[in-house]
């Protein structure tokens, strides 16, 4: 117990003894890995604060989960969050913490006592480094999550092509959540604009598997239930091959190769249903 205590005290002594010099070395080491992408002043401020908090916390123990380390953890969280947002790599983020070890790196003349202190610091820094990386990963996941949400919002425009014809140009991979949004938006637009014809253009969809086809079929059937006709257009040769190879039956759903063909078809359908519209669209 006493040896333990002494080791702890020695570590604090070592760190606080030459504080200015050590922090300077630390900042220099870290700024080297960041290659000037963060201003020296900003980095210095960050690390100085962290160093002071670390030394203060060490005075009461070495358990990084303890209450005494809460400020250190808060500073590290902030640091890794900022790094994640600014686009630094996990290595660059973690190096900021791991560089602390080099400050007390022992040489052949180092006293036994100091080596023990160094090893203790090592263990602590490793734990803090992992904590930093974990926070970094968590932040990145949050960013990805919010981006996916934004993508969902802007990826589904429903455009009006003609009186009574609306189209949804789908871009990107379709999954259940996106199809749900597309379906709701398309059906709502049908009601709002009173359109009889809907075109789903899948030129921008990279791949169609059974699940995506299922989603498309559901949308078409739902539109049909509401009294609108739905055409699927923009089927590329490879996709047609995949669909047939997978054995997906589109049944009596009209499919066209291009959006232009689909529009022509929709206008013709409008015409047969209502001669007045046909006369108008012919003009």
């Amino acid at each position: 117990m006493t040896a333990e205590r002494r080791g702890s005290e020695r570590l604090v002594d070592l760190l606080s003894g030459q504080e200015e010099k050590l922090v300077g070395q630390w900042i220099e080491g870290v700024s080297h890995t960041l290659r000037g992408r963060l201003s020296a002043g900003e980095l210095g401020h960050e690390l100085r604060e962290l160093y002071a908090a670390l030394v203060a916390a060490l005075r009461s123990g070495e358990d990084w989960r303890a209450e005494a380390f809460s400020e250190v953890r808060a500073l590290l969280t902030e640091l890794s969050r900022n790094r994640a947002r600014q686009g630094f790599t996990p290595t660059e983020t973690a190096t900021a913490v791991f560089a602390l070890k080099d400050l007390l790196a022992p040489s052949s003349e180092t006293a036994q006592e100091d080596i023990t202190a160094y090893l203790r610091l090592n263990r602590l820094v490793d734990a803090l480094g992992l904590f930093t990386v974990e926070t970094y990963a968590k932040t990145r996941e949050e960013i990805i999550g919010s981006q996916a949400e934004q993508l969902l919002e802007l990826s589904t425009p429903v455009v009006k092509l003609w009186d009574g014809v609306v189209a949804v140009p789908l871009v990107g991979t379709l999954d259940s959540a996106r199809t749900q949004v597309v379906m709701e938006k398309l059906l709502q637009t049908l009601v709002d604009t009173g359109s009889d014809q809907a075109i789903i253009d899948i030129t921008g969809v990279p791949a169609v598997d059974t699940e995506v086809a299922q989603h498309l079929l559901k949308t078409v059937v739902a539109a049909r239930l509401m009294g609108a006709e739905c055409t699927i257009s923009g089927i590329r040769p490879q996709i047609a091959q995949t669909i047939v190879a997978l054995g997906i039956q589109f049944g009596d759903i009209v499919t066209k190769a291009t959006l232009a063909d689909a529009l022509k078809h929709a206008l013709r359908r409008l015409g047969t249903e209502n001669p007045a519209v046909a006369a108008r669209s012919a003009r």
């Binding site: 059906l187 049908l190 559901k218 059937v221 739902a222 539109a223 239930l225 509401m226």
Partner: peptide, 19 residues
Amino acid sequence: VLVGMRPAVAITLVELGLS
């Protein structure tokens, strides 16, 4: 002729497998 079905109703029916 069935007229005026709401989008939400149409989606529900499709999910129920009723076309």
